[in-house]
């Protein structure tokens, strides 16, 4: 299996707090990989490092064979750095692209607390995400010289919305949708950027068991249909255990376990992290 995403020694330190500590992981092409861990374990921080929202303090991220992010502690952080491998990437030129560059490379994401474009309809939300792949420039867009491309973007939006079952709701204001559909719209919007790797940040948050089951089927379906690789953060263990090929477990910023769902289920360290350890008094 080809490796699509690789994190090497990624460390994210805020002041004195090491939120992600020396995280190394890989995601193979076509896999569904889950990143789990108790609250505050650093899962979302890891996501933010991959998508360029944060510059990792140290470490390297490789996507599709190309290094996309490299950094090493510098400036004030040089002395304050409390992680590992401080010198490993000194010789490499730091690379910290903005999130839009990462999206352009084919990594799209959703957010833990849904972030739709408030003032727009369902249709416009998805159409806006098509802007990234549009070839038109300002002049051709304003003077409507590129109206064919605009039409094509609209047609693609329609196709995407129909596939997601959101077409009937196209003229509704995005934030007036029920919660589950807002999540679905956010995924549709991410798909409009034509990603290869989809990062889902707690897609089942706030869903009941019935909706969670539907979501599992939905994630499998879009994975097949759009030929995606999925990396997701999730707390619903039944969802994680049914659909993921592999699981990484974070606790206090560090990787404590990795493996197939069955291995994780019986891993003592994971159980301890989630349930706490009985202390001998």
């Amino acid at each position: 299996m080809k490796e699509l995403l690789r994190l090497e020694n990624v460390t994210m330190q805020f002041g004195g707090v090491v939120a992600v500590n020396n995280l190394s992981m890989t995601v193979g092409e076509g896999e569904i990989v889950a990143l789990i861990g108790p609250n505050g374990a650093g899962k979302t921080t890891a996501f933010n490092c991959i998508t360029g929202v944060y510059e990792p303090t140290n470490g390297k991220i490789i996507y599709d064979g190309n290094t996309i992010i490299v950094n090493h502690p510098s400036g004030k952080m040089k002395r304050a750095y409390a992680g590992y491998e401080a010198d490993m990437y000194l010789s490499e030129k730091t690379l910290n692209p903005t999130p839009d560059r990462i999206t352009e490379l084919g990594i799209a994401r959703t957010f833990q607390n849904i972030r739709l474009f408030r003032s727009m309809t369902v249709f416009q939300n998805v159409l806006t995400a098509m802007h990234l792949r549009a070839k038109e420039n300002v002049f051709s867009a304003v003077l409507r010289i590129s109206w064919k491309e605009e039409r094509q973007m609209e047609a693609e939006t329609e196709k995407l919305l129909r596939e997601q079952g959101l077409w009937e709701l196209r003229d509704e204001n995005a934030t007036s949708l029920p919660y589950g559909l807002q999540r679905r719209l956010e995924i549709a919007r991410a798909l409009a950027t034509r990603p290869h790797l989809l990062l889902l940040d707690e897609p089942a948050a706030g869903m009941n068991p019935q909706e969670t089951q539907e979501l599992a089927a939905f994630i499998r379906e879009i994975k097949e249909r759009y030929d995606l690789t999925v990396l997701m953060i999730e707390h619903h263990m039944d969802l994680v255990m049914t659909i993921s090929d592999r699981i990484y477990v974070l606790d206090f910023g560090s990787l404590i376990a990795q493996g197939h769902p069955e291995e994780i289920q019986s891993n003592q360290r994971v159980i301890d992290a989630y349930l706490g350890v009985a202390e001998d008094v």
Binding site: T51, V53, T98, P99, D100, R101, T103, E104, A108, R109, F111, R115, L116, F117, T128, A129, H131, L132, R189, A190, A192, T193
Partner: peptide
């Protein structure tokens, strides 16, 4: 944040 994540510079 969302705009940036959708590839808008």
């Amino acid at each position: 944040t969302a705009a940036e994540a959708m590839g808008i510079n």
